[in-house]
Amino acid sequence: MLRFLVRRLPSVVFVLLATTVVAFLLPRLAPGDPASVAAGPEATPEQIAALRIEMGLDRPLIQQYLDWMGGLFTGQLGESLQFRRPVSELIGARLESTVELTVAATLLMIVVGIGLGVFAGSARSRWSRFTADATNTTLLAMPPFLAGLLLVILLGVTFRVLPISGEVAVLDDPVIGLQYLILPAIALAVPMSGSIAMLVQSSMDNAWRQDYVDLAVAKGVGRRRIAVRHVVRNSLGPAVVAIGIRFGEMLAGAVVIEMIFARNGLGQLAVTSVQSADYNVVQVLIVGAVVIAVVVQLLTEIAMATLDPRVRLGV
């Protein structure tokens, strides 16, 4: 494992470094001037110019980049141009919301995905197989924001059962907080659980055809028992890995869901920061997302090797 990590190190470092460059340059390439956003619509050019200097935007790009990188290694993420507050504080204030949403959606995805997959994988009658297939496909095809909007119409407008937008931190008030969490979590989890279900179903199909199942059948073990003891157990490996990958994607997927359900999470922060050209926040969020993606990728490879001895940690 250590050898594997050492071998992967150069490419990981390269990707991360390249990402910091891209994350730094991309928002600055976009037209738009954070100073004029901060100065407001009726500001004079002199006021804007003064702000540019105050924000440090008049310094050479290279110097800005090196300062930022130096800060990254010492834990100083920089200061938001929009709010004049440390980026770490802004992210910290919104982290809980996004993490709550992601965790809730992941739990839902696991329950629904594996449940549906096991159902589909063990269904025998034509009709139940068809139902399972149709459900899977629909879930898979359902864009999360659409699921969100439909849920809002059904449960928030037609039958006013659940709050459709806003949030209350679960830690502050579990009963109310969870109610705010249900709809966005469902919306986010739906399409992902479809793909998990498909994965479970196909590996179960595969497992049924294995020799040890034939052996068990020959020994007269009940179908139910075989399903539980052998098939399901041996089919969950890929699903676990996929769930890991999905968790990383969910953090990114939360952006649109947060917009629809008006949650003050990292996604909202990303959107407002991009809109007001708050480079300092945008670049940290991008690098953060990439770091998570890279780490998840590594963990997945390690997990696959642990689950399946046939996979060796090669390149």
Partner: peptide, 19 residues
């Protein structure tokens, strides 16, 4: 491609649109 892959889709899209 690895670098592109690292970027969450929406962030990449937003950057493209802004540019």
């Amino acid at each position: 491609l690895d670098v592109i892959l690292g970027f969450p889709g929406i962030v990449l899209g937003m950057s493209v649109v802004l540019v």
